[in-house]
Design a protein around this nucleic acid. Sequence first.
RNA 1: GCGCCUGUAGCUCAGUGGAUCAGAGCAUUGGUCUUCGAAACCAAGGGUCGCAGGUUCGAAUCCUGCCAGGCGCACCA
Length: 572
Amino acid sequence: MMKEKLRKILHDTFQITSQKEGWSASLPAFEVERPKVKEHGDLSSNIAMLLARPLKLAPRVVGEALLRHLQDPEQILAQSGLAGAGFLNFRFKKEAWQQLLSQVYAAGDRFGTSKVGQGKKVVIEYVSANPTGPLHIGNARGGPMGDVIAALLQWTGYQVVREYYLNDVGGQIDKLGESILCELRAIENPDQITETPQAERHYTGSYVREIALAAQQELSGKLKVDEEEQKRILGKFGVQFLFEEIKRDCDAMGISFDSYVHEKTILVSQLTDEMIKLLKERGVTQEKEGALWFTPEGAGEDALADRESVLVRSDGRPTYFANDIAYHVGKYRNHYDRLINVWGSNHHGHVPRVQAAVKALGFDPQRIETVLYQYVRVKRGNDLLKMSKRAGNYVTAREVLDEVGKDAFRFFLLMRAASSHLDFDLELAKQQSQENPVYYVQYAHARLCSIFRKASEQGIKLAAQPALEKLDLPEELRLIALIQEFPDEVLLAAERLEPHRIPFYLLELAQAFQSYYSLAKQDPKYRVLGSDVDTTQAKMYLCHILKTTLAQGLKLIGVTAPEIMTGGLTHE
RNA sequence: GCGCCUGUAGCUCAGUGGAUCAGAGCAUUGGUCUUCGAAACCAAGGGUCGCAGGUUCGAAUCCUGCCAGGCGCACCA
């Protein structure tokens, strides 16, 4: 909010100064930021340093000229100055800060939202876990991450579709069917060892037996067919079974989808064939060893060495790569402006291939944006567990979810940048559930609610237009400064597709409040509910807005904002 | 071997060209509850930002090389 105001001031100042000084440079993409050192002011800009080069002047000379012609029609600036290598530092009047609060108050539960997206259509694909095993913690990270990226884009004015791409055909599904069949035979003939599951050929997790038991119940009559048909039926049954389970897990994580796209549907619709034909016509394919390979311009011989470039197998069936191209083309045809994929890092090699393919088909590859997140590793004690559905060795998302709860689960997975490798220490998560950062933020919210409960007991009501000038303690002005940054943070997180900024922001805000609140123990003038009516009303107004901001931020990341904290009170 | 990601305090991680930028939380140590919730607050110790070069007025941040770790490199998805 204040950043925008300063941007406007600097923009106008630049215009006037250019005119008066005869500058010919264009307005650079300057930054407006909160300096780390508060002595430097409320906000600072690097505009003078950026202008120095094109104008062939020293940064400080540019800065001085800008300050001479400063445009501040609203009179919100209290101080301005030039510092260091050429930074412009600004301090605002108290009144300017205080006035921002009424804007936040008016925004209510729209606070933090904006319209920069201009209603553009964006589809965001996430989770998309293969239905060949339970959702495990390694790639469950994509759930909260995709969900919050979607929320960020909604908040900033995009029209968002949340999509799950279900890989329900292919070799992995065949393998699933075979695994279930194998297990089913073992169940039916416990004495007679027909075939033991083999790690290379079968999924061996205990869930396979679970599915086999369910299949025995539900499909008993339908399995009197030949072996290939049995495998097919069981594969289909397994997909359905596991997909329902994944959906339940997503639901428990607070994640939902607007659209499910089945790979099978794309295959059946012939879109894949159409795309393969088109690619052939464009001359970006080659045949080798009986298979059809994608060989984009400039790829040279490498494409033929890369087995993942195969579009059509030598047996004539298209690969998932071919289907994926068709899937993305479908998105272009649905007129999405942005196609965002949230994928596990193991797909990194896939990204440039899909982009090269859609480019060859005449679509703008830049519209595909991919967020690759690094896998979560789970530590149990001193052991790092490797995630592998094949080895049946994994920690499920559900296990962790049940252990630490939805709020901590989401917060924890969200508070790290996607590119950062994240170790989830189960023992620590359990032990420290009381100390988990999510509780810190929630506690701040609950405390604020508590103040209002107290006020209500005393018959004090929140005034719609209190005397804001009463909010002049330095800590209060700092809180206001933090609150008004919330929309900027949301915007930044949305622009960069970086959800982790929100938990960090909330922690900073919660900390500032907790610190402020605690001062009341030493000094009564920090008490919200004090003796002076005007001051009390003003402080309540600030607290109300703080509460709203925390609630908005928590809502954005899908974490609950409790009115009271229950359980685990250590204070006797 | 090739490709992507990562290397910042004991641990988990923020910080992607700016000035006191060496940061947060946890852990450790020491203080603070008759007063709006101590799930809190205040304070202290702790790091050659993996290493070496380079670009720049200026580098944790950009480039190159090396070292270490993770993940890919299936006619699987």
